[in-house]
Design a protein around this nucleic acid. Structure first.
Lengths: 303, 303
DNA sequence: GGAGAGGCATAAGCCGATTCTATGAGCCCA
DNA sequence: TGGGCTCATAGAATCGGCTTATGCCTCTCC
């Protein structure tokens, strides 16, 4: 189901937000590097498409109408998300030769880092982040060798020479489609039931799968059944679960949206601790300074 | 600061997500109602703009590269936010003559409803929501008269004939710019200090302001100082606070982003309970059915 | 092994959306 | 009353994206 046309181009909304902030169409046009007639036309066209009066135009400037204020508040969320996407992409491009090299495990890179980068861009616009991703060992190695100033890792292991600070928590979560029998289990399932059930999972060797196997072995003396289906992306796994293929175990950060929307159900599991800490690491010798410290502060506050 | 061009148009990203889900460019093109060459060009142009290889094209289909998977995961957040924006706008348009009339107070409409509507659209696409906004009394009246099937109100009052269910909580929060003296107050401030400080606030009569005055009077026997500046939008207030004009008191839902980003600081306040419940209401006689029940389930789960 | 189907890229032409410059009208202030 | 601000409109030029047509590659199945 593709995105409706009304909202696929965010630039009119972005312009609307600038008008709201600056108080006039002309000022917003200058801020966006276009002429006033172009801005005027873009806004009129938006109003015509939506069939809503968003702006109250006067000869002293323009203000949002009640509907306009509501739309602007909603639009801000989308525009902020797009800015986070841009921050992520931009940092991905600067693979070297830049200011603040950051290494992150996949979970952090996917679900947490974009917002932090967007916030960092606001707090210190001249800082250029160069992002590399990898598993927690790769990240630790990058930080130790100095290839990265700051790293974000999952799990408890911590090589000598690194200092760490917990910035977020993440819980592996058993998910099923709403119709699945497990979704009606109030009491939760036992580790043995999970271990006996063929799951939809990532390929062998993925961080999430390794961590689940490890926890199951250590805490319940059990192991995972042969997966019913191995897929290479979290998104593909969620789709398969939603279609009722089988349950899966994914990061709580990955499924928060679907759980909220009700398209997936969480199944409690008893007697198995599946929480792991996401931690910021940096060399023990070198305290964080400048932009790295800013990023650390943002990540810490964001908890 | 306008949105970068890379991300102002989300349609290439939307298309990328479809390719990831469907496994081929042609299938994604069909899903979006465009031809295969158009989709191919749109994706190539995205890759060229970003300077990143996102897709691995084969004669059997296309898969995401590692970079592509990361970008797709980030993009999903932005696309979902845009879908929520669309859901909000669409519901705003159907001011009457439609399926599920919903009335909501401004706080709920601004910060919570869009995601619920987007989830509802997934769960039951044929449901058309008609949204009206107003203060809690308006909402209660609309539900009582049957103008709305479901309502969302703030605060504890509950007219006869309505049943309510708490779906979220919201706390009025004192915010200051990072440099403000209050931001260094670990112990929090006293109600008397707040009451003596001229604030940036909404105009008289706004729900948030009334609630704050009420709480201050009832719980601390104090009243609000004359505001330093009255502004008509939450956004304008946040900007003023960030620029250091004065502290303000806003909903925690309104400032979560800025607090996470560190552009605003929260100041604890002792001896004043400023939490309020956001509740779903419906006529006592008529239990929720159909789409209204779906929406209630989504709102309840989303907590 | 050859035919068919499905996958993708390229080329050429068309159409439309958006932009710019130029200009006019309304309001405020000195 | 003139200058400066606001916004809207008009006409011309430009740019980008779409469609159709085509070719190449690979897998599958007879």
């Amino acid at each position: 189901m593709p995105l409706p046309r009304q909202v696929s181009d965010l630039s009119p909304y972005d312009l609307l937000l600038s008008v709201a902030r600056l108080g006039s169409v002309g000022a917003a046009a200058r801020a966006h590097g276009i002429t006033q007639p172009a801005a005027s036309a873009r806004l009129s066209s938006l109003e015509r498409r939506l069939g809503l009066a968003l702006l109250q135009r006067t000869t002293q400037g323009s203000r949002l109408t009640a509907h306009g204020a509501l739309v602007a508040d909603w639009a801000r969320t989308a525009v902020d998300a797009a800015a986070a996407l841009d921050a992520g992409i931009t940092s991905l491009l600067r693979s070297s030769g830049s200011r603040l090299p950051v290494a992150a495990s996949l979970t952090v890179a996917e679900y947490l880092l974009p917002r932090w980068l967007a916030a960092l861009h606001v707090a210190s616009p001249q800082t250029a982040v160069a992002l590399t991703t990898g598993n927690s060992e790769d990240v630790a190695a990058a930080v130790l060798t100095g290839d990265a100033e700051v790293g974000f890792v999952e799990g408890p292991e911590l090589p000598e020479g690194l200092r760490a600070r917990t910035v977020a928590r993440d819980t592996l979560t058993v998910i099923v489609a709403p119709g699945h029998p497990w979704s009606r289990r109030r009491s939760g399932i036992e580790p043995r039931e999970l271990s006996a059930m063929p799951l939809v999972s990532r390929e062998q060797g993925s961080g999430t799968r390794r961590y689940l196997e490890h926890a199951l072995t250590r805490q319940a003396g059990a192991s995972l059944a042969q997966p019913l289906l191995e897929l290479s992306s979290t998104t593909a796994i969620k789709s398969a679960v939603i279609e009722g293929v089988a349950p899966a175990v994914l990061s709580s950060l990955a499924v928060a949206g679907e759980l909220a929307a009700g398209t997936l159900r969480r199944v409690p599991i008893s007697g198995l601790a599946l929480a792991r800490e996401l931690r910021l690491v940096h060399p023990a010798g070198r305290p964080l300074v400048g932009p790295a410290q800013d990023l650390a502060a943002i990540a810490t506050r964001a908890q």
